Simulated scan of single mutants.
Amino acid sequence: MGSFIALIIALSPLLFYSYKLGVFPNGKVWKTPFFTLTSQYYESLSTFSWVLLGKLTPLYLLCIWFFTCRYWWYWAIIIPIGMYIFQIVSLFNDEFNLKDEPVELIYIFPYMLIVGVGLYFIRKKILKYIEMFNLKEQIESEVKKVELELER
């Protein structure tokens, strides 16, 4: 599990710089067999993807940190997670005109509530895996102490 998480973290620069790898076109329209995407707010989809990936990359790294943190203060990580989600919602609102009025700061509170409750339940489900990992580390440290005592 630790190797998988390390791999996901190691791939984060690749995710962020995918806008430079030619995944997103430099023009306003992106046609694929599955969909057609037209940029309205930004001059190019490459710029839109740069802004979007600049928000998504830290968001998923913060989520990994939240889910794997074993200290009591892990709830403080929800604040930047909520801020990034709010920024992504605002980005999509600007780009695709989801609402006529601008997204106000007051809208962050329902998002924070939804995100907080959702993250709480997800973390509760994976908490046993985190506790098993911590127990494994404690057992390994105790075994090393016993081995050192036996060598003396």
Rank of each mutant, 00 (worst) to 15 (best):
F24R: 02
S46G: 10
S39H: 03
G54T: 03
D100Q: 11
W72Q: 08
S44R: 05
I108F: 05
K20S: 09
V23P: 03
E104I: 00
Y111A: 14
N26Y: 09
K99P: 08
Y60Q: 10
L56N: 02
Y19W: 15
E43S: 12
L59F: 09
L45H: 05
I85C: 03
G27D: 12
V51N: 01
L61D: 01
Y71Q: 05
I114T: 07
G22L: 07
S39D: 04
N97V: 11
Y111N: 08
K28D: 13
W50P: 01
W73G: 04
V103W: 02
W75P: 01
Q40I: 13
M83K: 13
L98C: 09
M83D: 05
F121Y: 08
F34I: 14
S18P: 03
K99T: 15
Y60A: 00
Y17Q: 07
W75C: 02
Y74E: 04
G82V: 12
N26T: 14
I9P: 07
L52R: 09
F67L: 12
I108D: 01
P102N: 05
A76N: 10
F35G: 05
T38C: 00
L45C: 12
P13W: 01
A10M: 08
Q40S: 15
I108R: 03
S90N: 11
K31Y: 14
M112W: 04
Y120D: 01
G54V: 08
V89C: 10
K55P: 00
I88W: 07
T57F: 03
I78N: 12
L98K: 06
G27P: 09
L105C: 01
G22H: 04
F24Q: 02
T68I: 07
E101T: 06
L119P: 10
T47M: 08
Y42L: 05
L21T: 04
Y107Q: 12
L119D: 00
W65I: 03
F16V: 09
T38K: 13
P102Q: 05
F92L: 15
R70M: 00
W50L: 08
W30K: 10
L21I: 09
L45D: 11
Q40L: 15
P25H: 04
G54K: 01
L61E: 14
P110N: 00
I64H: 03
Q87R: 11
K31Q: 14
L53T: 02
T47I: 14
F121P: 06
G118D: 14
W72H: 10
L45N: 14
L11A: 14
K31C: 11
T36Y: 10
T68P: 00
T47A: 10
N97Q: 15
Y107N: 10
E95Y: 02
T47G: 02
I88C: 08
L14C: 12
V115T: 15
L45I: 15
F35M: 13
T32K: 12
L91Y: 03
F96I: 07
W73S: 08
F16C: 07
T32W: 13
D94H: 13
S90L: 00
F92M: 15
I114K: 02
L91G: 05
Y19D: 06
L113T: 00
V117Q: 12
Y42I: 02
K31E: 15
V29Y: 08
F24T: 04
C69D: 08
D94C: 09
K20H: 09
I78T: 03
L37N: 10
I78W: 02
F35D: 11
R70Q: 01
L62S: 09
K31P: 08
L91H: 08
S44P: 04
T36Q: 11
